[in-house]
Amino acid sequence: MTASVRDWTPEEDLLGFFGPDSVTWRVHADPVFSVGGLRALLLQALHPVAMDGVATFSEGFRSDPWPRLVRTAAYVDTLTFGTRREAVRAVRRVRGLHRRLAGVEPTSGRAYRVDDPDLLLWVHCCEVDSLLDVGLRGGVVRIADADRYVAEQVTAAVLVGCSEADVPRTVAELRHYLDGVRPSLALTPAARDALRLVVTPPMPAWVRWLTPARPAWGTLATLAVATLPQWARRMYSLPGFGVTDAAATAGLRAYRQAMLRLPQRARRSPIVWAGMARVGQAVPVSA
């Protein structure tokens, strides 16, 4: 799976690790991807050790979360839509940074490295669960596609440093993993900060008042919180967040339809567009 570049054909390198026929391309190119990314961040924050790593080593995260959010989105886009060489370069940068970082989580006293396998696996599974959830709710993919998406994402997990044998390959295995981790989760002060930053991120005054950024972000954040599992909303003391699961799904579908009316270049990143142009094939939009 992580074979040397010498083992790839030019065609394999061109298509990347997933390719335009994958469920991954379909989900990650869709407008609901942004909602899923925020949902994943909120799930990840409930792991005290994983969240301590973010709070400790993401410089300026509390005062200015935007650079980290942009870097994370660009990493996932490159891993998905880049060539294999581009994806591997991005992975090496991330793994090189993680390798140097270690700390002690204050509420548990656990000493950790940011690249501890269990932390990498937690981050991966939260991302897969979140992106699959919004993809299903939004009508981007069908239930029949769900196991295929989880299996495709094993590649992303192994590239970043997870042990292949530990990574869920089906929806059932993913659910089993998340259920097993839940007893170790907690709402730490750092997790509360993460919720605050997602719901009401700092913005310059001119952005708040002279652009539509604030209401647009409010829609994203509301949908991210509303689509969390009920147990996660309870942990954040937001058990209903004013909506039912059915209402959250309806809201997500309405958001997606509104975004699909925008010009295509306004709803996909340059990395996504470069990948599509490279393979000469657009990703089909689900009905």
Rank of each mutant, 00 (worst) to 15 (best):
A3T: 06
W8I: 11
E12W: 08
L14F: 02
L15A: 09
P20T: 02
R26L: 08
V27F: 03
V35E: 03
L41A: 06
D52I: 01
G53Q: 02
E59R: 13
A74D: 07
T78H: 06
F81I: 07
T83H: 10
R85W: 11
A87I: 03
R92F: 06
R92M: 14
L101P: 13
R113I: 11
V114S: 02
D118Y: 12
V123T: 12
R137E: 00
V140C: 02
D145A: 09
A146D: 02
E152I: 07
Q153I: 04
T155R: 03
V158C: 04
C162P: 00
S163N: 12
A165V: 15
P168R: 01
L174C: 01
H176T: 14
G180M: 07
G180Y: 14
R182D: 06
V198N: 09
L210K: 11
T219Y: 10
T222N: 07
L223R: 03
T227Y: 13
P239I: 06
P239T: 05
T244V: 08
T244A: 10
A246D: 13
A248H: 11
A250E: 01
L252T: 00
R253E: 04
R256G: 02
A258M: 10
M259D: 02
L260W: 03
R265L: 10
P270R: 11
W273Q: 15
A274L: 09
G275I: 07
A277G: 12
V279M: 13
V279F: 12
A282W: 13
